[in-house]
Simulated assay, not measured.
Amino acid sequence: MPIAHISLPVSSLPGATTFYLAALKPLGYDIFMKLENTVGLTIKYDGPDFWLHQCPSSQDKETQKTHIAFKGNSQNAVRDFYQAALKAGATDNGPPGERPQYTKGYYAAYVLDLDGNNIECVYYQPWWLSALQVAPMLVGGLAVAGLAWWGGRSGWGFVVLD
């Protein structure tokens, strides 16, 4: 599986963001998304593959762990990764499932490796499949709007029944 993204713990999120934006500018990187304690960087027209996350203090060992995500080629691959990792001694950190808080079609599983690093396997639903899932709502809305427009121009009266 190729690497999908990695997240580095940093002591100063603003400082690290400034540094990495400057260092990665020649490679075409820019900010993709800012969250409360995290910044995702990406190359234009691609998904974020490099994340920085704020460590609250040098005492907080959990947030100093690295996060790496491997790309799965299907939801089954994500589930297989999760089961194999648990069997190999990993600890559950999020079972396989859809993660709509990230983006539509983001299906992932998370485990903690033997050192406590957060290891993810993610499957990105193809953009065209997401578009097909949204299309019926758009087409239906356009059809109703078109019918209402055409009906109004044709002199049809619409009656609302209670």
Rank of each mutant, 00 (worst) to 15 (best):
L41F: 13
P48T: 02
G157L: 15
A88W: 05
S7M: 12
P2Q: 07
D113Q: 07
Q59H: 11
T103Y: 11
H5Q: 02
Y20Q: 05
W156M: 15
L142V: 10
L161S: 08
D49K: 00
L86N: 04
T18N: 07
M1D: 06
L114V: 11
N76C: 11
D49P: 03
P48C: 00
K61I: 12
D115F: 11
A69W: 05
A22F: 08
P9G: 07
A88Y: 00
D92Y: 06
L138C: 10
Q54D: 11
D92F: 03
G146A: 12
F70P: 00
Q125Y: 08
D162A: 08
D92H: 07
Y45M: 10
W51L: 13
D60N: 15
D30M: 05
L52R: 01
G116W: 08
L86Y: 04
A77G: 14
N117W: 08
G155Q: 14
A85T: 00
A135C: 09
Q101Y: 08
P136F: 10
L112G: 02
Y82R: 04
G116Q: 08
D46A: 10
T91C: 00
V10G: 02
L52P: 06
Y123C: 03
L41V: 09
A143G: 02
V122R: 00
T17R: 10
L35S: 04
F70E: 03
P136G: 04
L142Y: 05
H5D: 01
A131V: 09
P95F: 08
V139Y: 13
L21V: 00
L132T: 12
F158E: 10
Q75S: 12
L147N: 05
S74C: 10
L27T: 03
D113K: 09
H5Y: 11
E62Q: 13
A22E: 15
A131P: 02
T38S: 14
S11F: 06
G89V: 00
D46I: 04
A23S: 11
A90C: 06
V134G: 00
Q59A: 14
L161G: 09
L13H: 04
S11L: 09
Y102A: 09
S74A: 08
P100M: 03
I43L: 13
V139N: 07
N117L: 02
V39M: 11
K71G: 04
D49A: 03
N117R: 10
T18V: 10
F32A: 14
P56T: 14
F81T: 02
P2V: 01
L52Q: 01
G97D: 09
H67F: 12
V144N: 07
N76H: 14
G157M: 12
E62W: 09
W128S: 09
P26W: 10
A109E: 07
S130M: 08
G116V: 11
G72P: 07
Y107M: 07
L142S: 05
R153E: 12
N93Y: 11
A85F: 00
I3G: 03
Y102P: 06
